[in-house]
Simulated scan of single mutants.
Amino acid sequence: MLMQTLPDARMPGRTLSPKWSIATEGLSALQRQMLLDRMKAVSFDPKQVLFDQGEPSDTLLLVTEGRVRLFQTMENGEEFTFGICLPGTILGLAATVTGQPRILSAEALEAATASIMTRPNFLRCLSEIPPFHWNITRLLAILSIESIERSGPMVLDRASVRLGTILKSLARPEHGDATEPSLSVVGLSQQELAKMIGVSRSWVAIALSEFERLGLISKSRGKIVIRNASRLDGFIADERNH
């Protein structure tokens, strides 16, 4: 059953912020229920692809649980990660509005669920719920501005900065006795990290060792621990300023 209240989660690092709250802002309970009635809940396993670039944009997806990676595959086979999506994020909005093929792919980083609305139902909701239509227009403008703001830094960032921000985006809190809880990334291979950053696996291995030497992380088999998130933030800021 689709949850009617979605979390407005926030995470450090380069993540894509939730947008469902904007799409439903000002809607009555009846109008919200009209949207929910036209959506279907679907589950995805870790690493499962939600959709591929080039596919028809015939559905709109709302992430309800788990995290999803948006990426693009280049002609040479290399992947470029655009961001990590959190619960509350709408996927495929612009492509669904225009009816153009998807330009990005999406995969579940962990077990995830999404609510899916077909394009005909989406267009019907735009027609039947004027406040929803206005909210979607405003949301498309917000996404356009964010895309422009994000594209420059993403292209200019050093690989070390991309590694640091990706690690923070993927990390989950570890509960312990420390005043500032550690963050950990579990079950991610160096090859998978390399694909997200757009570098070789050997570069990732060397960079992680350097991060460990600097005291930014500690690593063991299948696990990377960020001991001090503030210190990693400082490293990322310094690297960007060089």
Results as ranks from 00 to 15, higher is better:
82 F>M: 12
48 Q>H: 06
219 K>Q: 11
111 A>E: 09
194 A>F: 03
104 L>T: 02
89 T>E: 03
115 S>V: 11
112 A>M: 03
174 E>R: 11
225 V>S: 00
38 R>L: 15
135 N>K: 05
95 A>W: 08
101 P>L: 06
174 E>Q: 12
46 P>C: 13
154 M>G: 13
4 Q>K: 13
90 I>R: 05
224 I>L: 02
11 M>G: 02
231 R>P: 00
24 T>E: 11
209 S>W: 00
148 I>T: 13
16 L>S: 01
241 N>L: 02
139 L>C: 02
5 T>N: 03
223 K>L: 00
170 L>P: 01
36 L>A: 06
229 A>S: 13
49 V>P: 05
32 R>E: 11
190 Q>V: 11
157 D>F: 02
210 E>R: 12
59 T>S: 14
229 A>L: 07
242 H>L: 03
214 L>T: 02
156 L>Y: 15
62 L>S: 08
114 A>T: 03
59 T>M: 10
124 R>K: 04
37 D>R: 09
55 E>V: 04
7 P>T: 07
3 M>Y: 08
223 K>Q: 15
183 L>E: 04
49 V>F: 06
68 V>H: 11
205 A>I: 07
168 K>I: 09
144 S>E: 14
126 L>T: 04
64 T>N: 05
180 E>H: 13
114 A>K: 07
202 S>H: 00
228 N>F: 10
26 G>P: 12
45 D>C: 09
228 N>G: 06
54 G>L: 12
20 W>L: 09
68 V>R: 12
128 E>G: 06
127 S>Y: 08
77 G>E: 03
111 A>H: 07
68 V>S: 03
148 I>N: 06
145 I>D: 01
158 R>N: 01
233 D>H: 12
169 S>R: 14
214 L>V: 07
188 L>K: 15
69 R>W: 00
8 D>M: 14
26 G>E: 10
48 Q>L: 08
105 S>Q: 06
80 F>C: 07
225 V>M: 00
12 P>C: 14
180 E>V: 15
87 P>C: 14
35 L>D: 01
188 L>Y: 09
89 T>P: 00
65 E>K: 14
23 A>N: 07
58 D>I: 12
62 L>A: 08
